[in-house]
Design a protein around this nucleic acid. Sequence first.
DNA 1: GGACAATTGTTGTCGTCAACAACAATCTTC
DNA 2: GAAGATTGTTGTTGACGACAACAATTGTCC
Lengths: 164, 164
Amino acid sequence: MTATAPQTSPRKRAGNGIARRIDADEIGLDALVGHAGYAVRRFQIWIFQDFIKTLGDVDIRPTQYSVLTVIGANPGLSQMAVAKRLGIERARLVHLLDSLEQRKLVKRVKSKTDRRSHALHLTAQGETALEKFKRLAAEHERHVEAKIGKENRERLLRILADFT
Amino acid sequence: MTATAPQTSPRKRAGNGIARRIDADEIGLDALVGHAGYAVRRFQIWIFQDFIKTLGDVDIRPTQYSVLTVIGANPGLSQMAVAKRLGIERARLVHLLDSLEQRKLVKRVKSKTDRRSHALHLTAQGETALEKFKRLAAEHERHVEAKIGKENRERLLRILADFT
DNA sequence: GGACAATTGTTGTCGTCAACAACAATCTTC
DNA sequence: GAAGATTGTTGTTGACGACAACAATTGTCC
């Protein structure tokens, strides 16, 4: 027996025979506490939920935002180049671009130099839309700052700079 | 035009007419660089991939590991309590437990005090298996340490302590 | 103590996402 | 020019989060 069990039942007996519900914060995480992956995962879920909520009116999700940003900063990239840069599978990027192209934010232009590939560009509408998205994303970033603190957010960005 | 485009084509002309492929690290991320969510997401993917690979021989994924750990540390919990503690939907936990129960690592015991709920316990086999999983998870954690540094990992855990 | 609301586990659907595999068109290389 | 690699596409699989509905059971309120 290695488990450090604080109780062996989902109820706690209060001595008078009345079963009490266990609060979530009474439940130990044991080895999980020392795992960076667990904390990072929970944090990432929180961040994405806030991002999706903050950009809810314009209906832009984190992955879509990353694609638009990269295309905006590097017009003419191929799908393969975008996928590699963002760590997205090229098969997945196809659907992402289908959606963004339907919404007239992005256009696929046949490349002159390589007839297999498409040169990706923002439409004029996409350019102005992206401006708005960036303002909303900055607002989301302020939420992150409010949640973990200004210095902690900057520390975090420094620690994880290699993964961008 | 707000885009700071270093090129407008997926090829770079080298002057002699030969098109050169663009390397991924030449592609700017623009606003993405300042977003904690992007870095956290990429890092989380890296961590999970390493975890899955390191625990590949025993076929345990991060979520399964978290469920086993919590049950091991708090025998007798209900499914609802585990789901709440780990931020998993109770509908999703059903399938997770189905799988773990089939593998004889966990057992659902009918609760005496609440006939709606199940008291969750590790089997004897589950106890010894979890020991091994924890050793492998610790090895994974050393990979994280090697990737971002010992101090950075500890800083990270401190910053994100509220999310566990 | 009996009606009504809340909780628990379960089943099902839907959409997102990563990981593969296969394919046609095209390019590169030898 | 033939063989192999690359690009975009389509499709499948499985993990995962979010919902909705349901039966069984428990809690609450009058």
